[in-house]
């Protein structure tokens, strides 16, 4: 197959994916820029989460390719993808493994053999950036949903990802927490990190997005750039 070479950060070409016998994506094509906040909206079962999982290589397509920086995802390890793209699961509990917040922040670095001094420096910086100083010694399982989400998001930032994928980050957040998340994502966006967000919260989407994609049964039915 001819390798797709373009300036897009993420390119999806001729993707076919089916769940059991249901064809979800049929010849699906999409390109995503790095310096843009893109939101995907659509009803339940339209393929939003599946699409992000296909982008990261968590699931394999039946046919077609996904390229990240012109590298074929099917030829990359999940850990390699994880070093380029930060993925926030819908349920942050899925990606929290440390006992306390500090343990959680240093979790991946410890396993990657990074020295304690570097870990401490990075953790301190992230604690400050994500306003986690107050809860740094708290047990992760005792945190509220919003706090867990902030911790999960902060662990992603320890790797300085070039791109972020957020799966329904506003779910279960109250108005105050949502406002905090908005400010945080706005800062990340201004730092030049590309973001792909799945959300049902249209107001939140409208406030942040540069591009809004609407999915229906695995098809893009609307793709608009916001002014």
């Amino acid at each position: 197959m001819k390798k797709l070479v373009n300036d897009k950060f993420i390119s999806i070409s001729n993707l076919i994916f089916s769940y059991k016998k249901n064809n979800l994506f049929n010849n699906f094509n999409l390109s995503l820029d790095n310096n843009m906040f893109t939101s995907i909206i659509g009803e339940n079962g339209s393929g939003k989460t599946t699409l992000t999982k296909l982008i990261c290589g968590m699931i394999t397509p039946n046919f077609g390719n996904v390229f990240i920086e012109n590298r074929d995802v099917s030829k990359m390890n999940l850990s390699e993808v994880g070093n380029i793209i930060g993925y926030l699961f819908q349920n942050p509990e899925k990606q929290i493994f440390g006992e306390s917040v500090i343990d959680e922040l240093s979790f991946a670095m410890k396993f990657n053999g990074i020295s304690i001094d570097i870990i401490n420096g990075k953790v301190e910086h992230i604690l400050e950036k994500f306003d986690l100083e107050e809860i740094k010694d708290q047990k992760c399982h005792l945190l509220s949903h919003g706090e867990k989400q902030r911790v999960a998001l902060s662990t992603i930032f320890l790797k300085n990802p070039k791109y972020l994928i957020l799966d329904e980050p506003t779910t279960g957040l109250d108005v105050l927490r949502k406002e905090m998340l908005y400010k945080l994502l706005n800062n990340i966006k201004n730092d030049g990190v590309g973001i792909l967000m799945i959300s049902h919260d249209l107001e939140f989407v409208d406030k942040l997005s540069d591009r809004i994609i609407m999915l229906e049964n695995g098809r893009v039915i609307k793709d608009e750039y916001c002014s």
Partner: peptide, 20 residues
């Protein structure tokens, strides 16, 4: 899902030593 979440955090399980 747990092992996917670990790997997407940049940990290459295959490269880890047995103890790790």
């Amino acid at each position: 899902d747990t092992f996917i979440a670990i790997q997407i955090r940049g940990i290459d399980i295959r490269k880890l030593k047995l103890k790790k």
